[in-house]
Design a protein around this nucleic acid. Sequence first.
DNA 1: ACGCTATATGTAATCGATTACAATTGCAAT
DNA 2: ATTGCAATTGTAATCGATTACATATAGCGT
Lengths: 355, 355
Amino acid sequence: MKQKSAPKIIDVARVAGVSTATVSRALSKPESVAKSTREAVLAAAAATGYRINVAARNLRSRRTGAVVVLVPNLGNPFFSQILAGIEATLSSKGLSILMVDTMQSGTRLDFIREYVHPSRADGVIVLDGSLPQDLLRPGGENGKQVPVVFACEWHPHEDFPSVRADNGQGARLAIEHLAALGHEKIGYVNGPEANVLSQFRLNATKKALADLGKTVNEHWFLKGDFTLQSGVLAARKWLDMTDRPTALLCANDETAIGLISELHQCGVHVPDELSVVGFDDVDIAQHYIPALTTVWQPRFELGTTVAQMLVDGISQGDLNPDAPVMTLPVKLKVRKSTAAPKPVASKTTAATTAA
Amino acid sequence: MKQKSAPKIIDVARVAGVSTATVSRALSKPESVAKSTREAVLAAAAATGYRINVAARNLRSRRTGAVVVLVPNLGNPFFSQILAGIEATLSSKGLSILMVDTMQSGTRLDFIREYVHPSRADGVIVLDGSLPQDLLRPGGENGKQVPVVFACEWHPHEDFPSVRADNGQGARLAIEHLAALGHEKIGYVNGPEANVLSQFRLNATKKALADLGKTVNEHWFLKGDFTLQSGVLAARKWLDMTDRPTALLCANDETAIGLISELHQCGVHVPDELSVVGFDDVDIAQHYIPALTTVWQPRFELGTTVAQMLVDGISQGDLNPDAPVMTLPVKLKVRKSTAAPKPVASKTTAATTAA
DNA sequence: ACGCTATATGTAATCGATTACAATTGCAAT
DNA sequence: ATTGCAATTGTAATCGATTACATATAGCGT
């Protein structure tokens, strides 16, 4: 009795004694058919084991039910929680996620370009602020545009809608915290220079320092690239300095952890000899030793928010024209990696004991 | 001159002065058309800005060009590197990734079921060993099956092809290392009981202890669930013990880190008072303080391997019938969280100095 | 010169749903 | 009773590519 090939809509129609149009309606807009018919169709669908052919529906209805997510680096745990938020929202709307790692696929931009197209996806979420922008506006002015929204990162000179954390406020809170502890010599370990977040956090840091009347010493501003290793290198540079800052804000938690671990290797204790602040509040941060003082970002919420923004844009047929930029609040989590600076050596020396 | 709607294959055909069949062939199997025609078609495609309609191709060719990846928890960084490996391999084959978080979508199994279907995906990669198996064999014996492969985790009583790390060897190496350091009282902090990895590592741990003639004391075997918090709880349980183990192997790095951080809070020093071994070697592990001794898993390679296995299965039209289980080797990374046990207090006390 | 094969291309059916439009029915208002 | 409207359902065109099959052309051996 079993059919060789998968049941199609016409098989269901036959069993239910209705037309294919009715089956289609009963399944996709149940309220548009009579109750009795709906039940008959549902029963027939169950009886035949019918499963819709997604390609056929997509072709005819000119939708895809999918959203492309362009992630800079899937291996980076920072993005995984944002992805989780995106997934939660999109799956609740019946949309699926096409994931593309722009690092991996980076050698062939054409590969990515293929995804930014109405026949592929109903929308695009970009977590990578450094993609060439022409890639996101395919076909210039003509043809249908796929709605594009940014999360976390963004294009500095473009006006795509975006959701981001309040990076400026985060840097300011961190600097104010260090200043309140009594630090006068405060530095910063940057992320990649090409990255908007790095630059934004860097500028906000300098602004906050200036506003507080603190020295902005370029020697205390170190390069980095968001990796653990760049924290290690920053530690070595700090060790080599003659006039060292007493506190360092890092562009992210990885950098802060690499920094602290290398200092530990070299017998330098945090926060006694240097206060360190991270950025992001990854899960490990509060379980690091010392527990990391850091700027918390609502990562899961960033994901749900950007997904919702895109869903709204898709259903409106177009994105909100005034290119909204949503900025979500951050929080400073004060833990154990920051403390008042050590009293200057030339004065009275009451040796501080380490735990 | 610009057309309102996106150019279709027939527009390209007109410009190139050939039929749609020829255009299709020129684009998908270039070697099957004459060189001159191919060039004309490519030029016409470029001139019109033609982009293929994926839904149409999928419908006709009965393929999807997509692979579904079922991830237990996207927010867990452990999976992100495996995903990166999967992405690298699949994207190089022109396949896209449909990502589904089985935790998020877990409330509705039907939602997941929808993805395990030939019209959705050409294959499925499962990273979650606890999914109901009927979900992965839709339609019982009839109908086309979608190839399914497992990575990391697997179904204990099923014979799907799978790729996994050598968890048994990992546990054995860890126990042998602790034994070699002189530990006699060795415990284990488990992951979720329902998880195959937890159980596998647990059993291998017990076996290794028995083989080495060490005590297997059930009081030293603690429950856990792979989270940082479960490490914290394990630490408290350890503190409450009267007869404490001198070394603990943890089911994963998160647990180990939670454990160490809580002990640190309580003034207990690792490894002086307790040796701790993790499992997985997440990026942070070597930058933790103390640097974590742990079992390294080839996570990226797990991803590339399982993806390759699936790709082979798809192209063969069927998966290797003898349900191959590939086991990738692990390595023990000895760092600073393990040391010889403290000499018994009643004996001579030569206080060991900590770095 | 003839037939045969190999190569290249064209014609049109096909994949399986959605949906515009038409048709039917029931019911209320006139 | 007749008309009008709303609610259901059916008929058939349609989405845009792929591909089985048919056809045309060229090269080759005898």
